[in-house]
């Protein structure tokens, strides 16, 4: 059975597909995150899973806007989500600059035992992505960046 909802959502059996085309601005990333969260809530995804998904998708999409498109508005990128019973499969595709060295940043945790003035104000994004995802992969194909990963669902209501 196929059913349609807002913003390119398709239902097939127990699986759901969501897709978003997002403008290369932080404001449009925010709007996409709000739409996705509403849709996942409607589909009955547990609050703690939606929280993790929102954090990961925010970091991935902000990276595309900031690094692949260098914060220049006027470009677009695609987000494709496949929700199954125990996993959210995600794919982010953009036409921006490749990842440096064609590899994913390591996303190491910071040393926080430092002077106040030396505390990091950035570089948390890839660390959060790596903490909350599994099977994280990156490929550069036909001048497009493809970032793929899964977010395991805990179904925890907390």
């Amino acid at each position: 059975m196929l059913g349609h909802a807002a913003n390119g959502a398709v239902t097939s059996g127990t699986d759901h597909m969501l897709s978003e085309t997002v403008d290369s601005t932080a404001e449009d990333v925010r709007n996409a995150l709000i739409r996705i969260n509403d849709e996942l809530k409607r589909l009955g995804v547990a609050p703690s899973d939606r929280d993790a998904i929102e954090v990961v998708l925010a970091e991935c999409m902000n990276n595309v806007v900031e690094h692949a498109y260098c914060e220049r508005p006027g470009s677009r990128f695609d987000l494709k989500l496949h929700l199954s019973a125990d996993n959210l499969f995600c794919r982010v595709e953009d036409d921006g600059k490749p990842m440096p060295g064609l590899a994913l940043p390591s996303g190491k945790s910071h040393n926080l035992s430092v002077d106040l003035s030396d505390l990091p104000e950035g570089g948390f994004g890839w660390f959060l992505i790596r903490e909350l995802t599994c099977d994280l992969r990156y490929a550069r194909e036909r001048d497009r960046n493809n970032l793929m990963f899964q977010i395991p669902l805990s179904h925890d209501e907390g």
Binding site: L33, A58, L119, E121, G122, F124, L128
Partner: peptide, 16 residues
Amino acid sequence: DFLDSSGLGAVVAAMK
């Protein structure tokens, strides 16, 4: 309701 890594960085900057 929501804070991302940029927001976290901004809170750290405020403390600094």
